[in-house]
Amino acid sequence: MMRLQAIPSQHASIETVRTAFHDLVLPDSLLQTLGCVINSRRSLFLTGMAGTGKTAVAERINAALPGAIWIPYAVEIDGQVIRVYDTHNHRKISDEMTPAEYDRRWVLIERPLVIVGGELTLENTDLVWSSASRFYEAPFQMKSNGGTLVIDDFGRQRVSPQELLNRWIVPLERRVDYLALNTGKKIEVPFEQLVVFSTNLSESDLADEAFLRRMGYRARVEPPTPTAYVEIFKRAAYTRGLKFDQRSIDHLLNNYMIEKRQMKGCEPRDLLDRITDICVFEGRTPEVTPKVIDIAWRNYFGASHSFASEKRTTGELRTTGELQLQTEPLEL
């Protein structure tokens, strides 16, 4: 059942891929690779420096997988119950879209997107027994069947990347996983999901060439060019309702040039969030200006805060008859 549903009814095209990634600015070559990944359902090893949008890309791959799938609420093996359906990872299709007559042991859901990060341990990949409820909880890879499994920040888990890769080298090749019951019995379950490994670490530090050859696809997300950066900035400003002009954009790009700082795809969003915070705090119209950009820049990339940097004094000149006083801040 799961193997039949794992293959989407329609192949992805460049148009459907563009639609799935419409809110991201990506090169056509990467969109083509992602389209091949989606159609083949082979694993993807996604690398790149921090802040280039790897996680955003990985999360949107699932949106390009059309259709809904049926999964069992639970499965029973030799009297042992394994719960599969999970409201945290599975989104049930509305009753209006569900057939009137169907086997009530099954539930119709959207293709699941399961994301795990630094909290992952090797124990999480096995069945978890609940002595209170007297049933097993399916591991996250089993719950991601028919959808997408994203291993985010790969290499920063509480288990070594080599151990995790050794655990999944057979499932990735054969599309089956083996889980153990408390009785010691091994059971075979489908491993029918698209697996994405996302990392900003070096490939050579995470896996040997033998394993990398078993990866379906490998892609590196590069930092944006100035033109791509401006397009990301414009889209992010539009969604936040922030006005801007070319003078402000030129000022922002000049800051990068002066500090010789590498542009990253996440920075327009982060800077605009801080600009919004400043406008709300000061009660001003939501607008991007060179002055506000400089304040947001310091808050984002870090800057020292001292009285010397403020070209004003905290005291005021006061006239009381014949005496004028000026107070100075106490410098510690």
Rank of each mutant, 00 (worst) to 15 (best):
I249H: 04
N182L: 12
I278M: 07
E203A: 15
R298V: 12
C279I: 06
I293P: 00
E282Q: 15
E222A: 15
P290V: 01
V230T: 08
V221W: 05
D270H: 14
R213A: 02
R261T: 05
G302E: 07
T276A: 08
R298P: 08
F233I: 02
G216A: 01
H251F: 14
T289W: 00
I293E: 01
R274N: 11
L201K: 13
I295K: 14
F307V: 08
L179H: 04
T183C: 05
N182R: 14
R298W: 11
Q246K: 12
K234P: 01
K185E: 05
F281Y: 15
Y217T: 03
I249Y: 04
I258V: 15
Y256A: 06
R247D: 10
A207M: 06
K243D: 11
I293L: 11
A228N: 13
P190Y: 00
N182I: 08
K264F: 07
D270Y: 12
S306T: 12
L201V: 03
I295F: 10
V292I: 13
V292F: 06
D205L: 11
R274P: 04
T227L: 14
E209R: 07
A236V: 00
R298D: 14
W297Q: 04
P223I: 07
D294W: 05
R274G: 10
S202Y: 10
F211G: 00
V221M: 11
Q262D: 12
R218Y: 05
R284V: 12
F197N: 01
V221T: 07
E188C: 07
F301N: 10
T227Y: 12
Q262M: 13
N299P: 08
R240C: 01
V230R: 06
M215N: 01
P190N: 02
E231Y: 06
Q246D: 09
F197A: 03
S198R: 03
C266Y: 08
M257T: 13
N299E: 14
D294A: 12
R220M: 13
T239K: 08
L242R: 01
E310D: 09
D250I: 09
I249A: 03
L272D: 02
E287P: 04
H305G: 14
T225K: 10
R284M: 08
H251R: 10
L201D: 07
L242G: 02
F307G: 09
V288S: 00
F197G: 01
M263T: 02
E267H: 15
S306E: 09
L252S: 08
Y300Q: 11
Y229I: 03
G283E: 04
A308C: 05
M263Y: 04
E222F: 13
D273M: 15
V221Q: 05
R298Y: 11
Q262R: 13
T225V: 09
N182Y: 06
I249S: 05
L206D: 00
R284Y: 06
N299A: 12
D250Y: 13
A180W: 10
L201N: 07
L194M: 05
S204L: 10
I232D: 03
K186Q: 13
L272W: 02
H251P: 05
A308Q: 09
L252M: 12
R220V: 14
S248V: 04
E222I: 13
S202T: 10
E222N: 14
V230A: 04
D273C: 13
F301W: 15
R220H: 14
D294K: 09
S309T: 12
D205M: 10
E231G: 04
F211R: 01
E222G: 09
P268C: 06
D273F: 12
